[in-house]
């Protein structure tokens, strides 16, 4: 047995769905939904990406190890984004330990004086 050959009809249906979603995301962008604009745009983008991956990239019919690689990549990416964003946007919410702050301040000022 060899690889699955998808019927042509599927490719054209996926193409039409991608075009429809492109027009949808483009037109929705002109409506003011506040912060929901980004949520809707990203949801539509994820739908489009899933259609491409599942059907154009044959993930639907591939061995599950390919899906595992994609899952791993997306999972690692989510670690990268979550931890970096989590760090940057909690720096002001969580105060620096006082002793650390003082030590760094002394080190900086004495270095500046030496120059």
């Amino acid at each position: 047995m060899s690889e699955h050959i998808a019927p042509l009809k599927i490719y054209f249906s996926v193409f039409l769905a991608l075009m429809a979603l492109t027009i949808l995301t483009w037109q929705v962008a002109y409506i003011d939904l506040g912060p929901w604009n980004t949520v809707v745009a990203l949801l539509i983008a994820v739908c489009k990406a899933s259609l491409v991956a599942m059907f154009f990239m044959h993930l639907r019919w591939s061995a599950s190890v390919m899906r595992l690689v994609l899952f791993a990549a997306v999972f690692w990416l989510s670690i990268l984004i979550t931890l970096t964003v989590g760090d940057i946007f909690t720096r002001h919410a969580l105060p620096q330990p006082h002793s650390w702050h003082a030590a760094a301040f002394v080190a900086n000022t004495s270095a500046a004086r030496r120059q």
Partner: peptide, 17 residues
């Protein structure tokens, strides 16, 4: 193509409204 699918809304559509 998938990379572009994300670039399009994030870069072009962000300020369209």
């Amino acid at each position: 193509d998938i990379v572009w699918i994300f670039l399009f809304p994030l870069l072009y559509l962000l300020g369209a409204r």
